[in-house]
Design a protein around this nucleic acid. Structure first.
Lengths: 134, 134
DNA sequence: CTATTTACATATTGACATAGTAGGTAAATA
DNA sequence: TATTTACCTACTATGTCAATATGTAAATAG
């Protein structure tokens, strides 16, 4: 299940994309529009900054803005950055201890196929494809 | 992420399928073959019984067996029974409070599409397709 | 140079789920 | 009657999620 971190991050990115060209957008505005606690969004936004997806400027007139144009972000890279690597099962998570049963696990190929499907789906979607009518 | 409940349930089903025609299979045997605590498997197996996927017989010579042939189970129905309804985000989980933002949520269609993809994938796989070489 | 606005940082918390374990009872067979 | 098996209830350690609380630093307006 995708957590609020990934979902809110995506909504922040969409919000910033929809207000492109308006200079830096204060997090307060995003929080109000999206109906999400600003305090919680700070945590999420910090990770987006660290990932190099957005930049922030302090002080009056400051706020956040995208680093690229919306068409240059994939949903997959945003989600994976926030949620960690896409992995349907623990044994396929990066950094997991290698499973001793991997060679004859009857279900492993199933999870691998599903993870590929998931990755293809989310990396095939771009931020620009999520922008609303507004 | 699929939890051990769903993953182990699938492995139990596969194990029983691979020993079809050998009468009732004691859980002890399954636990040993799969390298999973028998005590924990009891919890999982109870749910499989309640779901009507397998039946158990007590006493000497007892154990578990499938109710249908392996080709008549989909992976999806097994997983959904163990893990709860397939839903990538909380707002799409059955029993979730209806989200007031649903009508203009820019990300909702994304999650809906992904959930459809996921359902199609797992309901398109049958237990018979997971049986090993043995 | 002071007040205000904004980003940026660290620590803590309550609630809940996961992944089991412990210790039994009931049923069936040898 | 002893043994084997399923079946049942309760408990627990650990971790994650979704925040909140309480700051500090930076930039601008006046």
């Amino acid at each position: 299940m995708i957590t609020t971190k990934g979902r809110y991050a995506l909504r922040v990115m969409i919000d910033l994309a929809e207000h492109e060209g308006e200079g830096h957008i204060p997090l307060k505005d995003v929080a109000e529009r999206q109906g999400i606690s600003k305090k919680y969004l700070e945590i999420i936004v910090r990770e987006l900054v660290n990932a190099g997806f957005i930049t922030g400027v302090s002080g009056k007139g400051g706020g956040y803005r995208l680093c690229r144009s919306p068409g240059e972000y994939t949903v997959g890279e945003i989600l994976e950055r926030m949620e960690g690597p896409i992995a349907s099962v623990a044994c396929l998570a990066s950094g997991a201890a290698p499973c001793p049963r991997a060679s004859d696990c009857a279900t492993l190929p199933l999870w691998e196929e599903y993870d590929r499907l998931t990755r293809d789906f989310f990396y095939g979607k771009r931020l620009s494809g999520l922008l609303g009518k507004g």
